[in-house]
Amino acid sequence: MFRSTPSRRILIVTDAWRPQINGVVRTLESIGRVLQAAGHDLHYLTPQRFWTLPVPTYPEIRLSLATRRAVARHIGMVAADHIHIATEGPLGLLARQYCLDRELAFTTSFHTRFAEYLAMRMPVPQPWTYGYLRWFHSAATRTMVPTPSLRQDLLDKGFRNLTLWSRGVDGERFHPGSKTWFTDLPRPHLLHVGRVAAEKNIGAFLELDVRGTKIVVGDGPDRLRLMRAFPDAVFLGYRHGEELGAIYRSADVLVFPSLTDTFGNVIAEALASGTPVAAFPVTGPLDVLSDPKAGALDADLGQAVLRALTLDRADARAHGERFTWEVSAAQFFQALEPVLAPSRKMRA
């Protein structure tokens, strides 16, 4: 859809970047490849340019020790037609102020429920964090959100100028095929993929009283604790590329116990692999699993697993084919705003 447009120079500012492995990084990298293939000049401002410090209790995430001057110099050198601020951390704050100081229009996106995540680790009331997030995004021409249910939730919390930006999946990497993993483990093979952290609610999956083998792919601060608590589960650590695709294809069900994800990229990856999904009926799964033939939603996660085991893998794959990075990149591009576009008065 955006291939016929003139080439644009786009700057994406993000506090989340490699070596982090999460949905934000995967999304920004994936749409970047599509936009570059369409002829656009894409630039990223990431923590890789600066000294960083690890986040307490979550060392995988590192915060940039960037200065206002360094960020301004980089943004000025890029001279972008469009500026998108993807995260609300130190780099996002400095880029936001740069744009406001020069009356440049910019867009933002809402990827993560930081209010809920922070409250799990520190005694910070969620309304305080949402107040900061609302203030941060209020200066943007528009804020991109991944699902209709999240959009409504944020509107109810006082956010404005929200537009939808869905997610995609690499259909060449994640596709149906033969079962090559777990052949020596009792079936059914129940899989979880994602960060092994408190906000993912993995305990709700591992505590299920269901037959078969529970398998966890990923790493994070809760991995050792969960390995000790659930010795019968199989923990594989991070897996990537074709190996990860083969793991999805070999699973009977992906179990997605998170109550706080805004989309759930791994749901789309599982569906594209022909693997049905079991999840709670909350924001993210409610939107992605809109076809009951592709996955099962239930407040009783065990019942969702049992129903998912009865679903046809071909139906899961057919639903998963709806999510492509080409469509996602087109939505992102159409939501961008020219930096010099006339717009409403931006608020600091």
Rank of each mutant, 00 (worst) to 15 (best):
F2A: 08
R3S: 14
P6V: 06
S7D: 13
I12R: 00
V13E: 00
R18H: 13
R18G: 04
P19L: 12
V24T: 01
S30W: 03
R33S: 12
Q36P: 05
A38R: 07
G39N: 08
Y44D: 11
L45T: 01
L45Q: 03
P47Q: 12
F50I: 07
F50A: 08
W51S: 12
T52G: 06
P56D: 07
T57E: 12
T57C: 08
T67M: 09
R73V: 12
G76K: 04
M77N: 12
M77E: 14
A80C: 01
D81N: 07
H82Y: 08
I85G: 01
T87C: 04
T87D: 00
P90E: 13
L94S: 07
L100G: 07
R102S: 06
E103I: 12
E103Q: 15
L104S: 03
L104W: 06
T108G: 00
S109Y: 00
S109F: 00
T112Y: 00
A115N: 07
Y117M: 13
Y117G: 04
P123W: 11
V124A: 12
P125C: 08
Q126F: 11
P127N: 10
Y130R: 13
G131F: 09
Y132R: 04
W135P: 01
H137K: 05
R142P: 01
T143F: 00
M144E: 01
M144P: 00
S149F: 00
K157W: 08
G158S: 08
G158K: 04
R160P: 07
N161Q: 15
L164V: 04
L164R: 05
W165D: 00
S166G: 11
G168L: 02
G168P: 04
V169K: 02
R173K: 13
H175S: 10
T180M: 09
W181D: 09
F182T: 05
P188G: 11
P188S: 12
H189T: 07
L191P: 01
G194T: 02
K200F: 04
N201M: 09
L206G: 08
D209E: 15
V210T: 14
G212F: 10
I215R: 02
G218C: 10
P231R: 13
V234P: 06
F235P: 06
L236F: 10
R239D: 09
R239Y: 11
E242D: 14
E243P: 01
R249E: 03
L254T: 05
V255D: 05
V255H: 05
S258A: 10
S258P: 09
S258Y: 03
N265D: 11
I267S: 01
A270Q: 03
A279W: 00
A279E: 03
P281H: 12
G284S: 09
D287F: 10
V288H: 03
K293R: 15
A296I: 04
A308E: 12
D312M: 11
D315A: 15
A316W: 02
R317I: 08
G320P: 09
E321W: 11
R322V: 03
F323C: 02
W325R: 01
E326Q: 14
A330I: 07
Q331H: 04
Q331F: 05
Q334S: 14
E337F: 08
P338K: 04
V339Y: 05
K345Q: 14
M346I: 05
A348K: 15
A348Y: 15
